[in-house]
Design a binder for these strands. Sequence first.
DNA 1: AGTATCCTGGAA
DNA 2: TTCCAGGATACT
Length: 289
Amino acid sequence: MPELPEVETIRKGLEKYLVGRTIESVEIRLAKMLTGDIKKLEMAKIQGVRRFGKGLIIDLDNLYSIAIHVKMTGQLLYQGEGSPKSSVPDLTKVGLLPGRHTHVIFKLKVESEKLKVKGDYLFYNDIRQFGWIKVIETETVRELDFFKSLGPEPLKDLTLEKFSKILSATKAPIKPLLMEQRKIAGIGNIYANDALYLAKINPSRPANSLSIEEIKRLLKAIEKVLTKGLEVGGASEWQYVNVLGESGGYQNFFQVYGKVGKPCLICGTMIERIVMGGRGTFYCPKCQV
DNA sequence: AGTATCCTGGAA
DNA sequence: TTCCAGGATACT
């Protein structure tokens, strides 16, 4: 499920393949997925792609932007003559795109005759239809509730001081707190579990019970797992792939996420699973106190 | 602060 | 056939 490293990987791909391109037309196959002033998309040129937490903003040259949240199963897939001839299959050719779960198709303008044969597209797929795409003025895009209420972001502006303040303000359990986007932006279930494991902190610990040493350790651990995730292009558990349809590699580095019943990498104790805030929570009962 | 909700696919 | 996966929000 896309968290900060996965969404940042998508952002880089969009930036690489879409900046400078013009949107020729948009086909909306499922109306609820794309809202706002959709007429502004036609013949608009893409100027840049920004990310805040798990949200994306594609800026156009007409003072409008496209805000996107892929939630858990959304995929943004670029398919066109501009994509490299790599091991990635031609998704259009093999009939995977557009597919049953393709809800929006952005058709990009192609200049040369040669490119016109196949066309260039950005597909939005979303099996569970939880994601959203909104067309809104660039000036007000960050006023959208989601962007407006985001907390500080690790590897960006989440300082030790801010982190410490956030934790000491509540006795709520640390694990679900880490996933609250209004408190801290970008962390989801995978990286929350793994960071707590690396910091040797039990997920049930009240946030305000952590010592300054533990807070330091946890911030370092968060930065470490996110950096690793970024380095390997995210975790392709579930539906996540980058804009070329390629999988990431973080699933090979899971510390505890999804590893219930398997031995702890440090002490060999069986990893346990409990539910916190309705989410699967994985930890080593011996290492994480 | 905790829980139901959106939705589909895959596993049990 | 039922249950589970979880990001964010709208509820209670």
